[in-house]
């Protein structure tokens, strides 16, 4: 029982990280109609941006977080304008391959600039708190709080602002959004900015929880897509729920199967969703 609760704590932690990644991925999927394969690498480069801020200005990680989010959001817009925008009208699959290329470019860029070895934000071991039989690192609480704060901000943005509503509308019904006079290009830029910024936050949290590595994001891509599909394409609230479910399922699975197969659990849930309920648990526009 204790073990299960401990795994659930870990699962919610992983789930919050996945949720942040999945919200951006689902909006991009919904608005632009393609699976963005470089999303995991947005996470990684965000984490590394924060690393530079931390080491150069000697700031705490959470202070570096907004900078990393801003830079990654800007980078996402830049990549869209230079690459994706030009091929948006061709075929969605060309976009998909291009995003695969973006993933490789970002990852090799990280290796060139920051090197391939593992890095951490803070040297030294953080003493975990022992609460009864459970252990919790102070960082974990920070991650929970910051992730919850970001989710709240995203919720307010999507439900209260003109741009947020326009984004949901475009994800709902692209043609109608256009005849309504919603400016597609501006909404798309906002989608990238938010998707990139949230991915960066997810990457920073992942780096705080474990370590920084050039493929840190790529290895989470599959669980992120799983969360996206489980939650319903284009459904940000579904993506949050999906992220938490996938995170907990991955952690709990270690009770019965070797930990190395955690990504396979996410994958199995995803395939089951695709086969039995392709619209997701919250109906998406698949």
């Amino acid at each position: 029982m204790i073990e299960i609760i401990q795994l659930l704590i870990n699962g919610i932690l992983l789930g919050s990280i996945l949720a942040l990644g999945a919200v951006g991925a689902t909006m991009i999927f919904g608005v632009l109609r393609f699976a963005h394969f470089a999303h995991g690498d947005f996470m990684a480069i965000g984490a590394y941006f924060a690393l530079t801020v931390v080491t150069v200005f000697n700031l705490p990680v959470l202070a570096a977080l907004p900078v990393a989010m801003l830079l990654t959001g800007g980078l996402a817009i830049l990549i869209d304008q230079v690459v994706y925008r030009r091929i948006r009208r061709v075929q969605p699959v060309i976009l998909l391959i291009a995003s695969f290329a973006t993933a490789l470019v970002l990852r090799s860029f990280i290796q060139m600039v920051w090197g391939s070895s593992n890095q951490v934000y803070q040297v030294g071991i953080q003493l975990p708190w022992r609460i009864g039989p459970f252990t919790l690192k102070p960082d974990h609480l920070l991650i929970f709080a910051a992730a919850a704060g970001l989710v709240l901000i995203v919720h307010l943005f999507l439900s209260r602002t003109r741009m947020g509503k326009a984004m949901r509308a475009m994800s709902d019904n692209m043609d109608l959004a256009l005849v309504t006079g919603i400016p597609a290009n501006r909404v798309i830029m906002w989608t990238w900015a938010i998707g990139g910024a949230l991915a960066a936050a997810a990457g920073v949290f992942l780096g705080m929880d474990t370590r920084l590595h050039p493929v840190m994001g790529w290895t989470l891509l599959l669980p992120i897509f799983a969360a996206t599909i489980l939650g319903g394409i284009g459904r940000p609230y579904g993506a949050i729920l999906g992220g938490l479910v996938i995170g907990c399922a991955m952690e709990l699975s270690t009770l019965v199967i070797p930990g190395a197969y955690k990504p396979a659990v996410a994958f199995a849930i995803m395939v089951a969703t695709l086969v039995f309920r392709p619209q997701g648990i919250i109906k998406g526009n698949a």
């Binding site: 509503k165 509308a169 019904n173 109608l176 309504t180 919603i182």
Partner: peptide, 28 residues
């Protein structure tokens, strides 16, 4: 912007948005 509004035959609402949100977007 000129004051011409168009209602398509099918798929002419934003299904996941509320009525109020649908209307608000009309005045985008």
């Amino acid at each position: 912007s000129r004051g011409i509004a168009y209602v398509p035959q099918e798929a002419n609402v934003f299904p996941s948005l509320s009525v109020v949100e649908n209307l608000e977007l009309g005045a985008y």
